[in-house]
């Protein structure tokens, strides 16, 4: 038993002195193998008196267990060190580019339209689109715009050669015809937002394009008020331009709303103190709006005595230009990849 004790006392130092896995295996077989003291002692147990056997047996077992633990701990350490050496050699320049899948971008107009639509969807609006080649009736007459109105001239409106009647078929000049179409097909309450392409006989310049996007909103219900129009647009302004924005409405004129207003939002760049973004006024003109004219409600068969509503329409390019500092509308329609990939 002294021999065992001596073995256990000397083993930790011997094990800790080992620095490679091969030497560790040799030491393991010396300490625990067939020729080891542990093995020979266990073999000699039978020769011991019966009352000593359990005690010595337990001592051998304990010695073996302790040696095994020490060896295992050392092995684990040596293995980890070996792996560390290996990994240290396996080094690359991670600043080189990765295996990068190409990812495209949504067009900024789509992003803008989707964002606006989502704001109104959150308020309970449905989304409608509607035809781009439209009857003059929906584009003008149903919206209280008489045949003599100058907006109907060829200098403003693009007409298309389709159907029997001249001056009947045109490229819609706003998304508002969908007001009439939607109300024709739905009974109140109507809460709908209509994004889509619109067209004017305008040559391309910094702020005009023959094709542009409008986003129209319409809420028609019992008890819809001018205050509701204000509150709705204020909510939109805060969602789209930030929580500190305020709005103002200024009286204006549109044939299809009464009262009519132009909606301005306090400048997000200077907080209303006046800067380049807002041309020094502190306000940015965003859209036209107003209470739906009773004639429009009547044209679609609603009773203006009991039903009221508001409508608004904004240009998607305009609000995107304002928000992203874009100075020419061509950037939307050139589809230059260097522009497209900037907006996510």
């Amino acid at each position: 038993m002294d021999l065992l004790h001596e073995l256990l006392t000397g083993a930790p130092a011997r094990i800790d002195a080992i620095v490679d896995l091969e030497s560790l295996s040799a030491l393991e077989s010396e300490l625990l193998g067939k020729k080891s003291l542990i093995a020979s002692t266990r073999r000699g147990l039978g020769q011991l008196p019966p009352d000593e056997r359990p005690k010595v047996g337990a001592q051998v077992h304990e010695a073996q267990r302790r040696l095994e633990d020490l060896l295992a701990a050392r092995r684990e350490l040596l293995e980890r060190m070996a792996e560390d050496r290996l990994l240290a050699g396996d080094r690359v320049d991670v600043t080189l580019e990765g295996y990068e899948p190409s990812v495209g971008r949504h067009h900024l107009l789509t992003q803008t339209v989707d964002e606006v639509v989502d704001i109104f969807a959150g308020l309970g609006y449905r989304v409608a689109s509607g035809p781009e080649v439209e009857l003059a009736w929906y584009n003008f007459d149903a919206l209280n715009t008489p045949p003599t109105h100058p907006a109907r001239l060829e200098s403003d409106t693009l007409y298309v050669e389709y159907g029997e009647e001249p001056d009947e078929m045109l490229l819609r000049t706003h998304t508002s015809p969908m007001q009439a179409r939607y109300m024709e097909q739905h009974e109140p309450p109507v809460y709908v937002v209509v994004p889509g392409r619109t067209f004017r006989a305008d040559a391309l310049d910094a702020t005009h394009s023959p094709v542009f996007y409008q986003i129209e909103g319409l809420a028609v219900d019992e008890h819809i008020t001018f205050g509701d129009l204000k509150g709705t647009l204020a909510h939109f302004a805060r969602e789209f331009f930030g929580p500190d924005r305020t709005i103002r409405l200024l009286p204006n004129f549109f044939p299809f709303t009464e009262p009519s207003a132009e909606m301005h939002v306090s400048c997000f760049a200077c907080d209303g103190s006046g800067c380049r973004v807002c041309s020094g006024s502190g306000w940015i003109e965003l859209m036209g709006c107003g209470m739906v004219d009773p004639n429009v409600l009547e044209a679609v068969g609603y009773d203006p005595q009991h039903i009221s509503g508001f409508a608004f329409g904004m240009g998607a390019e305009r609000i995107a230009m304002v928000r992203h500092g874009i100075n020419h509308i061509r950037h939307f329609y050139e589809n230059d990849v260097r522009v497209l990939r900037q907006f996510t």
């Binding site: 449905r126 989304v127 809460y191 809420a219």
Partner: peptide, 17 residues
């Protein structure tokens, strides 16, 4: 126009089709 309060109508459920 400045003196009118900002209110919200109680719209029905909406969302995308």
């Amino acid at each position: 126009y400045d003196r009118f309060p900002e209110t919200l109508p109680s719209g029905p459920a909406g969302g995308l089709s």
